[in-house]
Design a protein around this nucleic acid. Structure first.
Lengths: 215, 215
DNA sequence: AATATTTAGGTGGTCTGACCACTAATATAT
DNA sequence: ATATATTAGTGGTCAGACCACCTAAATATT
């Protein structure tokens, strides 16, 4: 493993695993080579392979079962993000970036979904908003999950989920209640252009607000 | 390190480090105990401590300098996002999703930059487009790198760079030449609203085109 | 023959101890 | 006082050794 001298071995293992997954077209749940086998294949020590594997495990990318092996995770578990947040999110300047990016994704998803939403979907959205038995965060997630489904872009929804998880430790993770109703109303009125403005207004207000609440 | 039997050692190290940081009120840039010292303190092997440290490093929580020590990271919190994204992107071969997401980011960056661009910036953009000594890909990257700089959102630019890198395996990675000129023209005319439409038109055309070229 | 049991090999989990490359502070020489 | 060489400490990596656990094949039991 002495090819790229500047890079650490466990970083190279990371790349190698990614290539391996792609090359062999492995999907969620498929088995990876054992630590020993991977080490031999990459001419690295097992401990180096383990450093890479443990990091990936912590990120929820792989799943490990003692006595069985290492498997590609379905990546539904975002538990790693929680740990991240507990360390990271005291850095405030990045909170703004995160919130801004998240809102942008939600805005674009809302616009993409515009062309796909049926009447039944609108009713479903309304039901989520009116359901007071779940908390606001779950309302927000449910609401936009529906929208992202209609937007039909797997990459966008994955990025959004990640940001949503990150942003959960920040106080502001949802819009005002009136926001959701306003969006639904725009869908009903078939007012595509106004969607952009609705989000942008909220974005500017919140952006400023966050700037002043930095301690 | 035999107290909590069900938990892996490197997980316990993770918790211990978090407690250590909390207890000693360490801030960004502060030094952590060495791997050997931490191992002795926690009655664990150095390799186990390393597994935890490497994972934290990958998450961007700590920074490591050979010969000096391990420090609490001050920046680069988005390192993990990059890694995650690189796996997410590989997971599915939805080229359409990727292209759509990339264009969306470029569009939003163009709109964010709108409020920051000075006359000199526009000249710089024009110079990039008129420079025929570099290939189209580098023109595209240079053009939007300038725009993303003005948009001033670290997270957005990192996501974009990643997508740009991956999209290079696809044939379409840049716009028609007239597109860039048109965008500059809109900046000059201070026509904010038209930016959205410019991108959307291109997006719809390309989206359909790609739909038919999927192998 | 069908079932239950034992066994052997493979896997992750952990530890020990050893080098190497690098850095910074100390000691030494100029 | 300055420049140089030494040294101790640090992360980076490796090799090899156990252990606990799981699975499947070989064996024994019915």
């Amino acid at each position: 493993m002495a090819l790229s001298p500047k890079q650490k071995v466990y970083q190279e293992v990371l790349d190698a695993v990614r290539d391996y997954i792609e090359k062999n077209e492995l999907k969620s749940g498929d088995k990876l080579p054992s630590e020993r086998e991977m080490a031999e294949k990459l001419h690295a020590a097992r401990s180096s392979v383990r450093e890479a594997f443990r990091a990936m495990e912590l990120l929820g990318l792989i799943e490990t079962r003692r006595g069985e092996g290492t498997f590609i995770s379905s990546y539904n578990s975002y538990q790693s993000v929680e740990l991240l947040a507990s360390f990271i999110l005291r850095e405030h300047d990045k909170k703004n970036d995160l919130m801004q990016a998240k809102v942008l994704l939600e805005k674009e998803a809302a616009k993409l979904a515009y062309f796909q939403l049926k009447k039944g979907d609108l009713i479903a959205l309304q039901k989520i908003i009116k359901n007071t038995s779940i908390n606001r965060k779950d309302q927000h997630v449910g609401f936009f999950q529906t929208i992202f489904d209609k937007a039909d872009n797997l990459l966008l929804v994955k990025m959004w989920r990640l940001m949503q998880a990150y942003s959960q430790t920040i106080h502001k993770y949802s819009y005002d209640h009136s926001f959701y109703s306003a969006l639904i109303e725009l869908y009903k009125e078939k007012n595509y252009e106004a969607i952009e403005n609705l989000f942008n207004e909220w974005l500017h207000v919140t952006y400023k607000k966050l700037s002043f609440t930095i301690d």
